[in-house]
């Protein structure tokens, strides 16, 4: 049994310590908001927070998360009201939507570390997340927008 905290809830999983965190989250815990896109740390669809840091859960062994805090898209905010989520909706960012959980989780760390990112900062932080639908211009705009809203008080 491996114990970890997911979105604030203590969870126990009967998993091989080598099992990637992604599949623990999706297939054992049933949280499907975190996506599988490549399995080799190339696309960012599986991005979650491990103790507040963005990690590619497809290549993160669950043993690394033992006793640690994991946050998935389902736990990014209480009511879909993280400034990024609001800005995403305002800018109509999602198309197919499949990459967007990962985009939001990457952007959330960026914004926490850097409340007022430049375009270059966005390039640096977001280029590990592929969007096949090409929503990059709107993601960029939404991050800038969320940075403006960030004073609003929602948690990150």
């Amino acid at each position: 049994m491996i114990s970890l905290t997911v979105n604030g809830q203590p969870r126990e999983v009967a998993a091989d310590p080598n099992m990637p965190l992604l599949w623990v989250i999706r297939d054992l815990l049933g949280l499907t908001g975190t996506k599988f896109g490549c399995g080799v740390a190339q696309c960012g669809a599986c991005t979650v927070h491990l103790n507040g840091e963005a990690v590619r859960s497809c290549v993160t062994k669950v043993s690394r998360a033992a006793g640690q805090q994991v946050t998935t898209i389902e736990g990014l905010s209480t009511n879909n009201n993280h400034p990024l989520q609001l800005a995403w909706q305002e800018a109509d960012v999602p198309q197919c939507g499949y990459c967007q959980s990962g985009q939001l989780m990457s952007a959330a760390v960026l914004l926490r570390e850097n409340p007022n990112p430049t375009d270059q900062d966005i390039d640096d932080a977001m280029s590990g997340n592929i969007c096949r639908c090409g929503t990059y211009p709107r993601i960029r705009a939404a991050i800038h927008q969320a940075a403006k809203m960030h004073q609003g008080g929602a948690k990150s």
């Binding site: 999706r26 297939d27 049933g30 949280l31 499907t32 908001g33 975190t34 996506k35 599988f36 998935t72 898209i73 389902e74 990014l76 905010s77 879909n80 989520q85 995403w88 909706q89 305002e90 109509d92 960012v93 999602p94 939507g97 499949y98 967007q100 959980s101 939001l104």
Partner: peptide, 27 residues
């Protein structure tokens, strides 16, 4: 109009084929 599906596509709720789960379902 704004996209009707933007909400569920920003909080992980949107269900794709990959997200199918039910008791007894194997991969």
């Amino acid at each position: 109009s704004k996209r009707v599906d933007a909400q569920v596509k920003t909080n992980g709720e949107a269900k794709f084929g990959m997200d199918m789960q039910f008791s007894g379902l194997l991969t």
